[in-house]
Design a protein around this nucleic acid. Sequence first.
DNA 1: CGCCCCCGATGACAAATGTCATCGGCCCCC
DNA 2: GGGGGCCGATGACATTTGTCATCGGGGGCG
Lengths: 204, 204
Amino acid sequence: MTAVRVLLADDEHLIRGALAALLALEDDLVVVAEAASGAEALAMARAHRPDVAVLDLQMPGGPDGVKVATSLRDELPSCRTMIVTSHGRPGHLKRALSAGVRGFVPKTVSAQRLAEIIRAVHAGNRYVDPELAADAISAGDSPLTAREAEVLEFAADGAPIAEIAERASLSQGTVRNYLSAAAAKLGAENRHTAVRLARERGWV
Amino acid sequence: MTAVRVLLADDEHLIRGALAALLALEDDLVVVAEAASGAEALAMARAHRPDVAVLDLQMPGGPDGVKVATSLRDELPSCRTMIVTSHGRPGHLKRALSAGVRGFVPKTVSAQRLAEIIRAVHAGNRYVDPELAADAISAGDSPLTAREAEVLEFAADGAPIAEIAERASLSQGTVRNYLSAAAAKLGAENRHTAVRLARERGWV
DNA sequence: CGCCCCCGATGACAAATGTCATCGGCCCCC
DNA sequence: GGGGGCCGATGACATTTGTCATCGGGGGCG
């Protein structure tokens, strides 16, 4: 049996290197490429055609782990993808699964566990951390309509209504209506807490 | 020469374990204890009396890396402390330095580099990542008064003025005045962006 | 001591925001 | 064809928030 070829993508050199070292201890796994960004991960994947891509969810600058997974599904269907993340937001899990990701684990797992999961994913199985799965289920589906979510995103940095309206190419009144509706659905008393709640639930 | 005894504290098992494995490769370093939380780190430090404590800045629940460093300075003056962090906010660096931390590095450094820095810190030197240092200098000192910063923290989750006033035991008018002053100093157009800016600069 | 700054508060006013009702257009689906 | 939902907008209104002037008290400092 030939070893599983793994691509590692994580912006934190410390973690990436350490991870590579630990996975190297497993003699049925071989890290064939490392990347420090989403863009780099894509390039590496094209060049090395790994069996499994282990992607950090949040990477600076370009595409995040889920975006990379989406691209990989199209470009390299033979490559299974999995996401590793520090903060497990429920919505991220959903996004990831619909991007064809087959493994989703928090960084709190041990290296042994990760190695097992890589093998499972490579074998075609799926693995989702039970706790994250429970969170995602309890968080449920987003009650927000497309525009509500969109406007909420524009509101994310605390911008005033006028600016949101401009960026969304909408009337200020319309923006206020959407924000009001979104806040009501989320049980928030103003748009700022609404943004926070939506972020926590992974709905933006 | 006897090996440097290191305490590792990081909530992410994956990183902690991997780090321990990498540092173990350096034959003048020995990881004598690992901790997954601030509280645990303190307990471990008391029990094992390490030469150097490598602390993650953000840990869930209890005390963060800086708080641990503060406690360690009092309880275990012989133990040098250093902070490792993912997101390098300028203010954190300042807080850390005034807590007696002697090393401050982002997780983007390599393990070799980290090992060198641990040795430097153990030898009594200080090390601060140049990029983070530059950010901290350019961010400058907080222009906020104590109460302004305090009120801004209460405003951090988007709560309405009434709630902030209650939590801060202040009049609503006073709260509005402080928030207005803080927003003006930060160049923000409302308290929510003020909160965001203050966070970015590490002033809250 | 006088000066300055911070604290905490009040009042008044303007501006931004939240809330609600209502409209027309569109699309999907029964 | 007729709901029903989402989209986008408007108007009116109440509430919240931001802004400013002002006051009194207290502590530090030349």
